[in-house]
Simulated assay, not measured.
Amino acid sequence: MRFIAPAREAVDPAVFARLPLSYWSEFAALLGAQEWPSVADLDALRDKVQNETKDTLPHFVAQSPQLLGDGLHYEARIAERGIVATRERNWHDLLNALIWLRYPALKSALNARQVAEIALIGAKQRTRAQYALTHFDEGGAIVQLRDPALLELWDAHDWHGLFWRERAVWRDGSIAVHVFGHALLEHALNPNALFVGKALVVAMRDPANDSLADIAAAIRAGDLLNDPQELRPLPLSGIPGWHADNEREAFYADTPCFRPLREGRRYPPLGYSARIGPS
């Protein structure tokens, strides 16, 4: 069933103080205000961010029949015209804009790959890489992991072990989680939502200096996100502090987001991702 976001006036303001939306507090005025920000407001913020960071961002332009009349594919319009067609008064597109504002290099890398794939096979077909890129764009999370041994629990879908027995590592900086997918953030508008992200797992080297720029470069180069099977399911509701009920041990046994490992499912070793960037 397709998720339908609540009306703006129906959103409980408390969700913006909870993870993962609380990580986006710099945009609190856009998220929590009674009135929708206009697409022009978003584009003005784009100019401010670009001037401060020197990153190149596309413009946000209100989607209209006139804009779509150029006949371009959504991704091609970003690449060729520097325009993100953005629906007014729409949570999905507002959150997509915020991802662009915070992670422009990652979004640009995804766009470049999508356009390259479209050039290969046309706009009416989709490659395995396109599915991976889209899954990550919509529901993705980046997880930086200090201890590769945790993958054994994760890959076995031992959710009790990963989130309960190893509870401390989620709090002491051994794991860093960056929610990237705008559809995932949209689901967070529902205070009762059980979140499951599609995680791209990489090795944490120096947390003080770790940058996501290496990941963006690897995606752009085609070293990552060539198949949806690269992405591990991550029930974000299991992370300590991300759901009110996960202080109960039984939460990890009786909650439907914690699914068993499907027969035959295998995940890539951390070494595949860990080679990103300088050692």
Rank of each mutant, 00 (worst) to 15 (best):
V179H: 04
N246I: 00
G222H: 12
I219Y: 08
G32A: 15
L225R: 09
V177I: 08
L185D: 13
A199L: 06
V15F: 13
A203P: 06
R165W: 03
H92D: 02
F163K: 05
L185S: 12
A109S: 10
R220M: 07
R87I: 09
L68Q: 15
L45M: 15
N51V: 04
R89N: 03
K198N: 02
E75P: 01
G173A: 02
A40W: 09
H135D: 07
V11S: 02
L225I: 08
R2V: 11
L200Q: 12
H182R: 03
V202F: 09
A213Y: 10
D214G: 11
D254M: 01
G82F: 06
P65R: 07
R18A: 11
E249L: 00
E166V: 05
D55L: 02
F163M: 01
A253V: 01
Q50D: 05
R18E: 15
R266G: 07
T127W: 02
A244R: 11
W242V: 10
P256M: 14
G32M: 07
E117R: 15
P235D: 08
T127G: 01
I121P: 01
L189T: 11
H157A: 02
A188S: 05
Y103V: 14
I78D: 07
P278N: 13
A188H: 00
A28R: 15
V169A: 00
L120C: 08
G122A: 07
W24L: 14
N96Q: 10
L231G: 04
R2T: 15
C257A: 08
G271N: 08
L68I: 08
D158P: 12
G181F: 02
I83P: 02
